[in-house]
Write a protein that binds this DNA or RNA. Sequence first.
DNA 1: GGGGGAAGGACCA
DNA 2: TTCCTGGTCCTTCCCCC
Length: 829
Amino acid sequence: MCEEGFLSRMALNDNKAGMEGLNRDKINKIIMESSKGSRFYENELKKEQQVNQRIERMMLQKAHITEQQLSKAQAQVEKMTSDLERGRDLSRVIVHVDMDAFYAAVETRDCPDLMDKPMAVGSMSMLSTSNYHARKFGVRAAMPGFIAKKLCPNLVIVPTNFDKYRAVSAEVREVFADYDPHFLPMSLDEAYLDISDHLEQRRGWPERRGYSSEHGDLQETVEVEGLSPVLFENSPSSSPCLQDAAGGEVEVFGTCAEEAVREMRFRIEQKTSLTASAGIAPNMMLAKVCSDKNKPNGQYKLSSNRQAVIDFIQDLPVRKVSGIGKVTEKMLGALGITSCSHLGQEMALLALLFSETSWHHFLHISMGLGSTHIERDGERKSMSTERTFGEMSALKEQFSLCRELCQDLAQDLQKEALKGKTVTLKLKNVNFEVKTRAWTLPCAVATTEELFAVAKDLLKTEIDNVSPQPLRLRLMGVRVSSFASADDKKPLQKSIVGFLHKKQTNSSSTSQISHKPVKEHLPKPPGLTQPSACPSLVQQRQGQEGHAWVPSRGGVEVGRTGEDQQSFLQRAHAQSLRLQPESGTDSLTCPVCFREVNTTELTVFNRHIDQCLSGVTMGQNNHTDTELERGPSVCEEEEEEDEKTGGKREEGAMEKGRELLSRCMLDSVGLQLDSSAGDHTESTTGLLLYETSTANIPLSAVGLNPVCLNTCPNGGVSIHRGTDPNTLKGSSQSDPHVRDCLLSTGGPRPMTTPKPESRDHRGPALTCPVCQETQDTNDLTLFNLHVDLCLNQEVLHELGGLAPVDRTTHTAPPAAHKGLCFRDVLFTE
DNA sequence: GGGGGAAGGACCA
DNA sequence: TTCCTGGTCCTTCCCCC
């Protein structure tokens, strides 16, 4: 700490070129006065305390280290050191190039009036960079503009113009490409190059080559030997400058690494009127440190020999190394480590106090080792967008912003043709506390609607968690990660077919479905991910089975355990598994009971699945092992019965099947189907649904849209939150569900669905609450069938990226068509 | 005990 | 009056096998 009560993490970070020799105390006092008492400050104080606690724990741990432990660690360190030493590679010439105060320099170039003024690029909220005049006042990047103004009242703040910086950056990169076509850009103003190959070529060139800068056009000139050298004005170094035949100035460069880099910087300056600094070293870590050595407009070369590297590292402050920030610096400082040589001396201690990853990193630094191979074309891991704003507490605004962010992100994903399985919502409240909430889906998503379906549920969970207080936000962001690999992009149904055929179940296929239940396949309601975050749920221990969450109000209590989720997976997929025959197989494996069914007859197999499902779903599995093993024979008996009853049984089975589907899907997300609620037992699907869990349910994950029926202006099936089904009638727009429904759909729709009690209603044409299409029928049985089919399609589409072939006619698929058939609807890949 | 997801945080430009 | 954005990687915790 600089002084009593001062937050070290808020103190001026002068670890930047152009900030040496400043009056730190004076500057810190101003920063302190501007910040103290603010929410930001309070949050920083909290974080500082956390770091201090971390240090305390570390020191306590240190106090308990024995001599024996230390010598064991020392042996380990020594072994690793000698291994690393053997692998030390000094053969590459790595360059780190960094444009000087890039954004500020671009703005100054375009507005020369700014040349001699302290200026910064950014806003009153945050600065992106500052010029060297401003740095003398302590003004630097990542400082809010209002504080910078207090440090330097004459500071000119210019708003950012990224299009302009991108254009300049493209020009600079053209130059980089001449020295290393595979250079690695780190940002708009920074890149790593491996110029080893370029230097090899360069050796074959004339001893010196020159560039004439006449008319601003940089021309490579022929050999200039024999001309009298003159100094080039504004030249980065005092290199000789010659004149060509026309009397124009010619800058001359040699063939060594330093000359090549000087030439590169010269060309950048000629092309953009901006200066760059560079570091030349045998690896990336050292090159980065070297580029900062002679900033601005300078370069530094570290010789490629071991002793030079060791000497260079000796007195280097740890904070100068990329990857060591203020927290690590403080932790090392508590152990008396400030320079890289200290780091090497205390390595055994560090090996005992830090994680393996961390101390290995420290060891590399202390030996002056770094990457000698510039990793190119690394795959992107995530994509996100976030926005900071003034306090936002209104639900409508929050959901609307959430959708906007999803829309922006969907556009970005589309540009790179990416789809990801994990959607993360980031929230920062007005107290600067950051929360992230993630949910991993069974398949990759990319569209606005898909992203919003998840993000809004995550948001809703957080809103409910602080209810009845409003969620007071200052930032919201949405991120997508776990991008689909080439394998993941393959249609899911192939895997399903493979999964069901016993011969393939044991293969090492990368299919998304396997015998072994994989967690990410399990749609998990956000509300259930963190039981403690949901006070209305009672958490129960159930032996070895994990946790069960029992809703404390509304509906019948339904415990949910890991087991439940697994069986949901089975059920959900089973529901979507209606097969077309595939040649070359003689048995199928049931996705519910996992038993082999000796048949290739899909009607028979589907019946078996239905029977399994009825057992699983109703919680009264009537299958005995013997019965299940019989598989086909059960179905044979049923077929016989069908013949006797003239197919009536089939009709009943369809009805039952529909109910089962709804029951399965709803149960899986904590909803219950109620068939005993008096007048309200029937809705458009002939079923009244109400929620049995107070957790927030991402219905979209299983393809259900939370549309509501008679009480909601949007129409549809009623999903009533947390109240007795008999109170449904009284719902209004103030009902949270109705409000959400309106929000998510953009406003009330004309109510076109029939009243639940009027099953024989003969009114105008009906509109399906799922596909929103008007159906040319007023026969509710037919209409209900259509709604079910739509729901099924939505579910399958969600689960497997399947596209419905025919939504209106429900025609049976041609027998020869290869694909999946689910309840008379054909899906193609 | 190891693998993997979620959440939070460090660090970078 | 006011403290960003977008990305990667690491750590910790917890669940599950």
